[in-house]
Design a protein around this nucleic acid. Structure first.
Lengths: 342, 342
DNA sequence: TTGAAAGCGATACCAA
DNA sequence: TTGGTATCGCTTTCAA
């Protein structure tokens, strides 16, 4: 309806210059806050810009400056509260620094990761924050290798040939604490449900295995790997509980597994903390209010995103060689863990 | 490390033209898939582009085409699973159509909404999907009024003077169903916890009040309004339970309230479904596995985002005047609702 | 201090 | 069918 009433076509820098009766370059200088303009010039330009309701075209600005002040964020599924917290942390830091976020979901499909990264690069993002589905997808690796876009990779470890910075969670410590508590309580047969072969998965497995060794015990560990969704949690839990003898304690290596696992537990009338001990990695809403509360390997997801963003900003300002930052995880013991049954 | 080894500076369309020994315009034509190029020309250009590893600069393309094929998404907090589902739904539709998403969190601060919208417009987004914190923030309304960017507003209703499309949830129906169940079970004193004065809040209040009327009952409704976070849920629940007489059933008008409300319920040793009936609007992970399961007013959040994106795409293709789409909500009765105590 | 002019990397008109 | 050229809106020398 109200199409071209007031300003008509969105006014550009030329109109401002004309109205102010000055050169186009001066307008640019004043409006982008560069020094070297008389007070009078500043005044005139500001006034003209205000009158016209002028706002700069950042596309043109970016093209000319060769910097878009935007960064691309590639993750598998923003619906996962873990990821949305990370995005949120990154967004706050980046926005504060004047950057915008281009968000993309890959759906956990490695080939889509590569497509999205390429698209973002075509959009000339100044940097990338990546949480790739896999660590060894050929297409993605090839792309990243010849890429010159600064990037920070979260919770993955890519080949040295790729020039990336890393923000990693110290999954090893948190899971070690959990395993130690379980083994100390007398549990010997443990179940561990994990995702694909990426760093967190490997660290969690290593943590549990080392925990057996640290107590001079022979590992009786059953690893069930899949894709870290509720369905996998459900199926894995059924497989584990159907074993004879079945594990007396299970560690879920991912928040999304919990819902599925709890469905099985509910269905079978299992009482957590008595019939079975359960630990979940990464917090889930309400898991602390559950009866019994679910013991959890915690970490600060928002911080993870903030640090990733900050590392990227640092890298943009003063490029330096690859480095990795390790962020803590810790085990919160809750009543879903108990003694060995019988 | 591996800086300018292979291609050196990212090659542009000129290099491709030169290598192929053709004009720059022809390259553009071939690469953007326009008709009117001989098979031979197509061949030569494609080959040259491949050899150089050429990828187009979408910034330049957007500037010239006056269309960035990107859309801005403004919401309060991506950390809220409701919002992340909406974003996810929108992202999938938009990505499929070749659009990118610029995501921004306003933190629920109305003045920030306006700033973010302006920034996105400067970035020349082709459209906006908005979930503003308030419906009457002067700065935001003024901005939207003079804006010519097509937009879809989710779950808010803005003044007619603003040319927007809407995707709305039919909160009225779901909450009516819930209220009807509670009143039919004999509950008379109801508590309703709501957020700020926006459409969903008004619809929920109206639904409960109408439900009393429909059964020819005198409303004994206690409304506690705040900001839809866990803390508000906690405080509101304490206020409601401290009343004499206290409500025998409470409806929480937002998912984030549940955690806080449950903390109070746990702390006071209240047994849901027996001492108190509880309904939550919008699903929360695990709430169905809770003991007792939490009765919930459901809706399809992903669909909400998908429809918003689709409406925006429709509008971009063939502009038409403001319209609104209403998406269903429905009540799922679960054991957190029971008879009136005593 | 100011402004004219040359790009940034693409598209699109128009003449050949 | 092809290619030269003006242009998108801005930044940035460079000379005045």
């Amino acid at each position: 309806m109200s199409k071209n009433t007031a300003g008509g076509t969105r006014s550009g820098i030329r109109e401002v210059a004309e109205l102010a009766g000055v050169g186009i370059a001066s307008v640019s200088r004043v409006l982008s806050g560069q020094p070297g303009s008389s007070a009078q010039m500043t005044e005139r330009v500001m006034e003209a810009a205000r009158q016209l309701g002028y706002t700069p075209n950042l596309l043109a600005q970016s093209l000319r400056r060769r910097s878009s002040r935007s960064i691309g964020f590639v993750c598998s599924d923003i619906t996962n509260p873990l990821l949305s917290s990370i995005v949120s942390g990154a967004e706050s830091v980046l926005t504060k620094a004047g950057f915008s976020i281009l968000l993309t979901n890959s759906g956990g499909v490695a080939s889509v990761d590569a497509e999205r990264i390429e698209l973002l690069q075509q959009r000339q993002v100044d940097g990338l924050i990546l949480l790739p589905a896999l660590e060894n997808d050929p297409a993605t690796l090839a792309l990243l290798q010849r890429s010159e876009t600064p990037m920070v990779v979260i919770d993955r470890s890519l080949p040295d040939s790729i020039d990336a910075h890393y923000v990693l969670s110290d999954h090893y410590t948190g899971v070690s604490q959990a395993a130690h508590v379980l083994l100390s309580a007398g549990h010997r047969r443990l179940g561990l449900v994990v995702g694909r072969d990426v760093r967190p998965t490997r660290e969690r497995i290593r943590a549990v295995e080392d925990s057996y060794r640290a107590m001079a015990l022979e590992p009786e560990l059953h690893i069930d790997s899949g894709t870290l969704c509720a369905e996998h949690g459900e199926q894995a839990m059924e497989r584990l509980l159907d074993m004879t003898p079945a594990p007396t304690a299970v560690i879920l290596g991912g928040n999304q597994l919990l819902e599925g696992a709890l469905r099985v537990i509910r269905r079978r009338g299992i009482q957590l903390g008595r019939d079975l001990s359960l630990v979940c990695c990464d917090d889930v809403a309400l898991s602390r209010l559950f009866e019994p509360p679910i013991a959890t390997v915690m970490r600060d997801n928002v911080r993870l995103g903030q640090r990733a963003a900050q590392l990227l900003l640092d890298q943009l300002q003063t490029p330096h060689s690859s480095e990795a930052e390790l962020l803590p995880t810790w085990f919160e013991l809750r009543a879903s863990c108990g003694p060995v049954p019988e």
